[in-house]
């Protein structure tokens, strides 16, 4: 076989002028179509993560769609629940997790999935995350970490790396960022994974695996906010940032699960960008502590006599 020559000629002969049917995006049924196009900037990683979540619930898990409730807080990511045509709720800033806890305790057969941002879950809502993880409430938390407060215009967040330039750290960020995955594990999450938006299929599979896991599961998605974070730190546009993720990711293998979760710090160099992003499934406690609703049921039996 001879290698095909790469040409830049435009070939319109394959175009179908009268399509035989109406085409739909495979996930159109799971989207609130009137809300699309989304409010997100071109190339934002949140849309990709929404798609990964939809792929997870259609392809990799058997949880019935009517039993899934998507809950989000405030922020760019907070609007995610509004685009998904499932039961959903857009809670107040930082309080997506308590809301989900209430839903889960009232209806243990429901699987609450929280899709929210790093500012929402780890700044204002940090206390709730710690307690939900401690109680091991059966919910899946997908936190989209873009290293910045995007919606409000690019102020520094608890996840902004040292030295990074933002609107409110014009001379470079002084304090150290959180390692979200380690916080979740330290507080008692029984499933923890991290992927970048570049790794679509592993991310979708991890979301499904987290949802199938009984207990508090935590999935961190490293996303690109090229408009507010990338632009000010010379990381380029969405394409450049995703290519950087591709280069910087260090994938953990299945063998490393439960072993190297403490070696997962993200490395960032000022002027260069992300140099190391450990990804993969960090923790999966198979012999899990029993999740909360089950514990409530098992805590006591009522004598009827």
């Amino acid at each position: 076989m001879t290698a095909k020559k790469k040409t830049n000629e435009i070939d319109t002969s394959t175009m179908v002028k009268n399509p035989p049917k109406k085409f739909h995006h495979p996930y159109d049924e799971l989207l609130r179509k009137y809300a699309i196009p989304t409010i997100y900037c071109p190339g934002c990683g949140i849309g990709t993560t929404i798609q990964a979540f939809l792929e997870a619930i259609t392809k990799y898990t058997d949880i019935p769609h009517e039993n899934i409730v998507v809950i989000s807080g405030i922020g760019c990511t907070g609007r995610a629940s509004g685009y998904i045509n499932l039961d959903g709720f857009h809670a107040i800033h930082g309080r997506a997790i308590p809301f989900a806890s209430g839903v889960e305790i009232a209806r243990p057969d429901i699987k609450p999935v929280i899709i929210s941002g790093d500012g929402d879950l780890f700044s204002i809502g940090m206390g709730h995350l710690a307690h939900a993880a401690r109680r091991n409430i059966d919910m899946t938390v997908i936190v989209i970490n873009n290293s910045i407060y995007g919606l409000t215009g690019g102020q520094d967040a608890p996840t902004t790396p040292v030295g990074a330039l933002t609107k409110t750290t014009p001379y470079g960020k002084i304090s150290y960022p959180f390692n979200l995955s380690q916080i979740a594990i330290a507080n008692g999450a029984t499933f923890c994974a991290r992927y970048t938006v570049y790794e679509f299929t592993p991310l979708a599979k991890a979301i499904a695996r987290g949802m199938n896991h009984q207990g508090f599961s935590f999935i961190e998605v490293i996303s690109n906010c090229h408009v507010n974070f990338g632009r000010r730190n010379n990381l380029g546009d969405a394409i450049a940032m995703r290519k950087q993720f591709k280069k910087a990711r260090v994938r953990m293998t299945e063998k490393d699960i439960n072993k190297d979760w403490h070696k997962t710090d993200i490395e960032f160099k000022v002027g260069v960008g992300f140099t190391k992003i450990p990804t993969g499934i960090f923790l999966e406690e198979k012999e899990r502590p029993i999740e909360f609703s089950e514990r409530i049921v098992n805590a006591y039996e009522i004598k009827k006599s």
Partner: peptide
Amino acid sequence: GWRVAKMQRMRDCIKCYMCERSCPDFAIF
């Protein structure tokens, strides 16, 4: 007002789904 993406060389396509999965706006599938 966006310059949209277009398929230009369908003969070369290998159906890797990379475009569909990288699209944040459900615009290509």
